[in-house]
Amino acid sequence: MARRIGWAALLAAGLLLPMRVYPVLAADILAWALFATAFDIMLGYTGLLSFGQAAFFGGGAYTAGLLTQRLGVPYPLNALAAALAAGLLALPLMGLAIRRRGIYLAMITLAFGQMVFYVVNEWRSLTGGENGVQGIPRPALGGVDISSSTAYYYAAFPLAVLGLLLCWRIVRSPFGRVLLAIRENDVRTETLGYAVHRYKLLAAVLSCALSGLAGGIWVINHGFVALDAVHWTTSGLVVIMVLLGGMGTRLGPLVGAALVLLLRDFISTWTDAWGVVTGTIFILVILIFRQGIVGTIERLLEARTRPAPAPAPAVEEVASPHRS
C-alpha cells in the first residue's frame, strides 16, 4: 500500500513539475532521468562501466534533430527514430567493447565516444560542425501544437515514463536476473550455460537505444544540438548522476539526474562555477554514502525492517547495490 502511494506521489510530482520549475528545465530532467536510468542497466545491473554514452545520447539527438529539420519528421516519431539509430550504432561499437572488462572497457568506450565526436565535428555538411544543427522545428503527429515549453513537457512525459518503465521492466525480468549474475561473476554465469556475451550485448544495445530516446526527447526540447551533446563531458555527467543517486537502484539515476540539473540551475543564477559545487557534493556522497542517495536510504529502511520477517520481494533484495 505504502509502495502504491509512493508511486502515485512520484507520478503527481512528475505531472506538477513544470508548474514549479522552468518547463524547459523540467523536460531536461525527463530526458536526463531516462538517460541515467537507461545507462544504469549497463553500469548498475550488468557491471559495464562505459565512458562513451554521449555517443548514443548525442547520436540520438543529432538523428532526431536532423530528421525533424530536414524531413519534417514529427514528434514522437523523431524521438523513436533516435532510439533506433542509437541502438544500431551500439550494435557494432558495444559488440567490440564488451569483449573487455573493467578499465579496458571504459577506455574502449571512451575512445569510441571520441571517434563519434570527431566524426560529428568533421562531417560539417550534415552536422554543421562547431555551429551545430540550429532552428529545429517542433512538429507533432496529428498536428497537435506542442510549440510551448509546457505543452512539450506533457508531450514528452508519457514517452519518458514509457522509457523508464521499460528500463525497470528489463532489470526485473528473468533476463535482468542473468545480468545481475553476470555482474557478480561472469565466468560462473558462463559455466552455468548462459551465453554471457550475448546477454551483455543485448543489455548494452537496449541501454544505448533508450539513451538515444533520451537524446531525442532532449533535442526537441531545445530546438538545436551542438558538439557538447557528443562530448565526453556528457558521458561523464551521466556517470556522476547514476553514482550520486545510487547505481543499481530503481530510482537512484532519476534522483541523481534531477538533483544535478536542479543544482546546476540554482547555482548558475549566482555563479558560473556550478561544477565546483556539484563536484564537491559528488565527492562527499562517494566518500560517505558509497551507495548513493537512494541506495543509502534503501539500506537504512532495510535495516529498520529487518527484525520482522522480510516482506520485500526477492527481486528487490538482489536489486540493491552490490556490497563488495
Binding site: 522552468y22 524547459v24 562547431e130 551545430g132 531545445h222 538545436f224 557538447d228
Partner: peptide, 20 residues
C-alpha cells in the same frame, strides 16, 4: 551571461532570459 562560445549554452541562456 557568459556563453563560453558554445551555441547550445548561448541558446539555452537566451531562451531562459526571454522566458523566465
Amino acid at each position: 551571461a557568459d556563453h563560453q562560445n558554445k551555441p547550445d549554452v548561448g541558446a539555452s541562456k537566451a531562451a531562459e532570459f526571454y522566458d523566465r
